[in-house]
Computed example of a mutant assay.
Amino acid sequence: MATNNIQQTLTFEKEHTGRWYVVLPEWTGGKAALEMVEGADTMLDIMAQGEKEVTLTVSEQNFEGANELILTEDLSNSIGGGMYLLKDYQGEEINHKMWLCEVMTYVFKKLPPVVYFK
């Protein structure tokens, strides 16, 4: 995965168990770290609209049509990753909180204060 690109593409797959995982073929850690939990799974269910796969364009820089995930709590020194808030999605206010684990620092090489996605 090229981390110097402004935008990256991430794919998430829902397994028959109902659990969501980010697809990172180059990941050398355990699969459990790739599971989307604590609100991220709920958001993927909303985005998927019944499908078993979601592909997102993500960036630290705003781009046309992007939604914003705002870091509300840096958990790097405890459980890793951070708590993010999605204030609105597709024009509707939802104020959805989610934990995004230390895989964020693998993808972005840091814990971004804002992640833009579409």
Rank of each mutant, 00 (worst) to 15 (best):
A40L: 04
E13R: 15
N77P: 10
V58H: 00
G91C: 04
V37C: 10
V54E: 00
S78L: 07
N5H: 11
M83T: 08
E15N: 15
V23T: 10
F12C: 08
L85T: 05
L34D: 11
E13L: 14
E60Y: 02
I46N: 00
V23S: 13
Q49T: 15
G65L: 08
L86W: 00
G80A: 04
P112A: 03
K87C: 05
V107W: 11
M1H: 13
M47L: 15
Q7E: 13
G82A: 07
L75C: 08
K87P: 02
V22Y: 05
T9L: 09
G80C: 07
W20K: 02
K109G: 06
T72D: 05
L85G: 02
L71P: 01
T9E: 14
N67R: 12
T28H: 12
E68Q: 07
G18Q: 04
A66C: 05
A40S: 05
E35D: 11
F12R: 02
I46K: 05
L100D: 00
E53G: 03
T57H: 00
E38M: 07
G30M: 07
Y21V: 11
V37L: 14
L44Y: 04
L44V: 08
F117R: 05
T9M: 09
F63D: 04
L69F: 12
V103I: 14
S76T: 15
V114G: 01
L71S: 09
I6A: 05
N5Y: 08
N4L: 07
W27E: 01
W27T: 02
E35K: 13
M36S: 02
K14L: 00
T9K: 14
D45R: 01
F12K: 00
T9G: 05
A40D: 00
M47P: 03
E13P: 02
K14H: 06
I46L: 10
M43E: 03
I94L: 04
I79F: 03
N95G: 01
A32H: 15
W20T: 09
M83W: 06
W99F: 09
L100P: 01
L34Q: 03
V54A: 12
F12G: 02
A33F: 07
T55N: 09
V37Q: 11
E26M: 03
Q7S: 05
V23W: 12
L100H: 01
L86E: 01
V37T: 12
S76V: 15
I46D: 04
I70R: 15
G50H: 05
V54N: 00
K97Y: 14
M83L: 14
L85C: 07
A48V: 12
E93Y: 06
T72A: 05
N4G: 09
